[in-house]
């Protein structure tokens, strides 16, 4: 019996032409790449996709007591077109999922997603519902999952720090390389020897 497990989605191919990376970013030596990642890491303009009570925790994290602006997360993006990071906080329903997908696609590159709370991670308490998407990662690629129902603001801070660690070690060249062909994934690493 096969089990139809949901597979997390990944960054799909670009459909209006090839994915490209600027020549400067390709040719940049390691210190410059470090610097670029460093800049990316500490200026995450965030766009809160608030869908349920987790959004309140997100707002609490942006306020004075927890204050994620000190980590460089800026919650003033007027919309997804100006945002680097999307925090999906709350229950994603099948009706909302296309909007989540579209707004994610409208964000400029490079973009990151934090799935905040049990509902966004896997459906949470509504895992059995007929209309709840079982995790936002079925629609868009997620970088960091923050567990909790709802998670405390400290948990989001931890998630942001984890994402920043991920960005620090990220390679733009690998990320924006054209996806490998399916055949290349299954072909053997070594060619069989020539039969004498």
């Amino acid at each position: 019996m096969t089990v139809d497990l949901p597979t997390p989605s990944t960054l799909g191919p670009s459909t209006l032409g090839p994915s490209t990376l600027g020549p400067g970013a390709v040719a940049a030596p390691k210190p410059v790449r470090f610097l670029l990642n460093w800049g990316r890491r500490y200026s995450l303009w965030v766009f809160n996709f608030g869908l349920a009570c987790c959004a309140i925790e997100f707002i609490a994290t942006s306020m004075a007591r927890h204050d994620f602006i000190r980590l460089g997360v800026i919650p003033f993006a007027p919309g997804p077109r100006q945002a680097d990071l999307m925090v999906v906080s709350g229950t994603v329903t099948d009706k909302m999922a296309p909007a989540v997908k579209r707004l994610y696609e409208q964000m400029p590159e490079p973009k990151y997603v934090i799935s905040f709370g049990s509902c966004a991670n896997c459906g949470g308490p509504y895992w059995d519902s007929y209309c709840v998407t079982k995790g936002v990662d079925q629609v868009i690629p997620v970088d960091v999952y923050v567990p909790g129902c709802p998670p405390r603001p400290e948990a989001l801070l931890q998630g942001i720090v984890k994402l920043q660690e991920k960005i620090a070690g990220e390679s733009m060249v690998e990320r924006y390389a054209e996806p490998r062909s399916v055949a290349s994934l299954t072909e053997p690493t070594l060619a069989p020897p020539e039969s004498p």
Binding site: L11, S14, T15, L16, T20, L21, G22, E105
Partner: peptide, 14 residues
Amino acid sequence: WLLRPARPTPEKQL
């Protein structure tokens, strides 16, 4: 132009 990644999709033009 030197540093940016580009991944053109139809949603971005919407």
